[in-house]
Amino acid sequence: MRNFPFRRARLGTVAVFALAGLLFWISFTVSRGNNIRTDDSLLQMSDLIRERERQNDALESSAARLRSEVAALTERDSGTDPEQALRLDLAETAAGLSELTGPGLTVTLTDAPRDAEPLLPGVPEPTPNDLVIHQQDLQAVVNALWSGGAEGVRIMDQRLISTSAVRCVGNTLILQGQLYSPPYTITAVGPTDRLRAALDDSPALRNYQSYVAAYGLGWDVEEHDSVTLPGYEGSVALHHARPVEPGN
């Protein structure tokens, strides 16, 4: 009877190896020979966004080089026709493709501190969404500036054009393939008195101001006697959906 513990231990060892083999087979079956630790389905959205940003940076560098070549050829071919050159300059200015200088202002929006507490009596405790800048806040500023007579608008370091889209994932801004974190700066060239009045008259921004007072969201407006906006340097190609042909 002394050898019973030994047999029990030996049987236990066999059972452990059998179980390990079963788990290995299940893992192989699930992964189908792939590395399940690096499967694309396990990547977080932020990782995908950063990877796309790296791709966009490479494409943008190539596009900038090609635009420089096109600009040089355009200048060479239109140099003998002053009227044509003037029309081209006016078109580029209207489209936001050329540098713009003039009086203007800059609006800065900032998240509130994460541990912010109500600053006014009777205000409820904030939720996380109450303390961060949202897509609609940025859009409200841009819309107000355009309505106030802005000749050009820049968010962070990028000039806006007619096809620019302001999108946010969480509190991260995605603009024309680039990622930005707060504080966000929006600069406009135009009549400063009208721009300020448009900001004050915006219902969406009046709502934002209530959160500034209640929880400490950041809001600052700085006027400039002269400010320069760079021309837009991204692609101006338009992309659109096409209907599926019957039978496809």
Rank of each mutant, 00 (worst) to 15 (best):
V70I: 15
T29S: 15
N143R: 12
L59E: 11
T185Q: 13
D111N: 15
R159I: 03
G247K: 07
L22F: 10
G216D: 06
A213E: 15
A197H: 08
T101N: 08
R154E: 08
V123D: 02
Q136C: 02
P203K: 04
D77C: 00
G21E: 02
T93Y: 14
A95L: 10
Q209A: 09
L86T: 12
T192A: 06
Y232H: 10
E83A: 15
P183N: 07
H239L: 08
L229F: 07
F4H: 09
G152L: 05
Y180N: 00
T80A: 15
V212D: 05
Y215M: 09
G122E: 05
T38E: 14
Q158D: 06
Q136P: 02
F6A: 13
L22P: 04
G96I: 00
A94E: 13
T187S: 12
S61A: 13
S181R: 14
L48H: 08
I49Q: 10
Q139A: 12
E222V: 15
I49M: 13
V107I: 12
L73N: 08
L43Y: 09
A204L: 07
L195P: 00
V132K: 15
R206N: 11
R8K: 14
G148I: 04
R54P: 01
A18D: 05
L86S: 10
G247H: 09
L88F: 09
D115K: 01
R32L: 14
M45F: 12
L100E: 01
T192I: 05
L205S: 04
R159Y: 04
C168I: 04
W219F: 13
T80I: 10
L229H: 02
L66C: 01
A198S: 10
R32E: 11
T74A: 14
P118L: 09
D47L: 12
S41T: 15
Q178C: 03
A15H: 06
L100R: 10
A204G: 04
H240A: 13
Y215C: 07
L59A: 13
T38L: 14
M45N: 11
E51G: 10
N129G: 13
V169N: 03
Q178I: 03
H240L: 10
E75G: 14
L119A: 03
Q135R: 14
R196D: 04
V189H: 02
I26T: 06
D200M: 08
Q44Y: 00
Q44I: 00
W146V: 02
A15M: 09
A213W: 05
S27R: 12
P5R: 04
S181M: 11
A198R: 01
E69N: 05
L120T: 05
R167V: 09
N3K: 12
L145G: 01
V153R: 04
F6K: 13
D77M: 13
P128T: 03
Q178D: 08
L73E: 10
V221D: 03
L88D: 11
G122S: 00
D89I: 01
A237R: 08
F24V: 05
A72R: 08
Q84I: 03
S202T: 02
P124V: 00
Q139T: 06
A9W: 10
L23A: 14
T127M: 13
Y180E: 02
G104C: 09
E60S: 12
L105N: 01
I133K: 04
A237M: 11
A18K: 06
